[in-house]
């Protein structure tokens, strides 16, 4: 029996989201349910209130992501769930505790020598001592740059508290990291899933209007509806870090990982992520079984289920 955790409603999106994004961004529990149903595998959909009771089932899969309202709930029950399901659970303990904790990720990345040099600050006083013009400040928590700002001129130094207050987790911003701003044209995103490694590069913005707009000048659009900058599939020569990425996946024993990379240094990684969009016709990927690069026509249906199917395969359910 597979226990499928119902996604928190905070991850839903409105009807204005284009259809291809609706397919890709559908609730994880719906995707799990479709695959389990089509394979005649017994499952039940559960929610937080069920975890107060005696736990049941053999496997557990659930989207425990970074939205504050959801995190407050899953942080209270994760340990109990992991004690019961162990490595038959997604996310497992390592993936869960590295997720949404950049300071902790830094320690792991440092071990592999692929970290972006950072100073960790545990409170505002420490931050004010370390922040200088030309630095990027990132809360250890948050995804999608929602808790990041860039200080590029002197007057910004006088308004650090204001920029913190603009972050979604302003009440719980610390610890944070201070990093030198890296001037580069593209950010790479490398995804490892289903024994395949995909890579894209996305053009970065320059000329931000406000420190909190860094690194992308997004407006108030819903995350699922952001236009995004030009994205291209990586070619064979641009991938890099393949062996390290596979080693980290092995160490964390988790089926999927996405790495954000600048100049061959990892900014952060995550065990779950928004699916790669069909931003391009074909994606180059590295096949971990054949150890060779292949090319695949992007299918929205295929990409929509990559993460969830990879989880079920990893756990031996399908």
């Amino acid at each position: 029996m597979v226990i499928v955790h119902k996604d928190h409603g905070v991850y839903s999106f409105d009807e204005s989201v284009p259809f291809h994004k609706k397919i890709l961004s559908e609730f994880y529990h719906s995707k799990f349910e479709k695959t389990l149903k089509s394979n005649n595998i017994p499952y039940i959909i559960t929610d937080y209130e069920d975890y107060d009771e005696d736990l049941v089932g053999d496997y557990f899969v659930g989207r425990f992501a970074h939205a504050l309202i959801d995190k407050e709930l899953h942080s209270k029950c994760f340990d109990k769930l992991y004690d019961y399901y162990g490595e038959k659970m997604w996310p497992n303990k390592k993936a869960y505790y590295y997720y949404d904790d950049k300071v902790r990720q830094y320690e792991l990345l440092e071990k592999y020598g692929i970290q972006v040099p950072s100073v960790t600050c545990n409170d505002l006083d420490e931050l004010l001592k370390n922040v200088t013009i030309g630095t990027v400040i990132k809360s250890t928590y948050g995804a999608g740059s929602e808790s990041t700002f860039y200080v590029w001129e002197k007057e910004h130094l006088d308004n650090i508290e204001e920029y913190i207050s603009n972050c979604y987790n302003s009440e719980n911003f610390f610890p944070c990291q201070v990093q030198e701003y890296i001037s580069t044209e593209h950010e790479k995103k490398i995804v490892i899933t289903n024994d395949e490694i995909y890579g894209i590069k996305q053009k970065l913005d320059v000329g931000w209007e406000y420190p909190n707009h860094f690194p992308f000048n997004y407006g108030d659009e819903h995350w699922a509806n952001r236009k995004g900058n030009k994205v291209e599939s990586l070619n064979e020569r641009e991938f890099g870090l393949l062996d390290t990425i596979m080693d980290i996946k092995t160490e964390l024993n988790t089926p999927n990982l996405k790495f954000d990379i600048i100049n061959e240094k990892v900014i952060e990684f995550t065990y779950m992520y928004g699916e790669l969009l069909p931003e391009t016709y074909k994606y180059m990927y590295f096949d971990m079984n054949t150890k060779s690069f292949e090319e695949k026509v992007v299918s929205v249906n295929d990409f929509a289920y990559k993460q969830s199917n990879s989880v079920l395969k990893h756990l031996g359910i399908i």
Binding site: E15, P18, K227, N229, K230, E279, T280
Partner: peptide, 12 residues
């Protein structure tokens, strides 16, 4: 509904 989208350049 009627959705207007501006896609990034260089899409196929």
């Amino acid at each position: 509904d009627r959705v207007e989208e501006l896609y990034s350049d260089g899409k196929e």
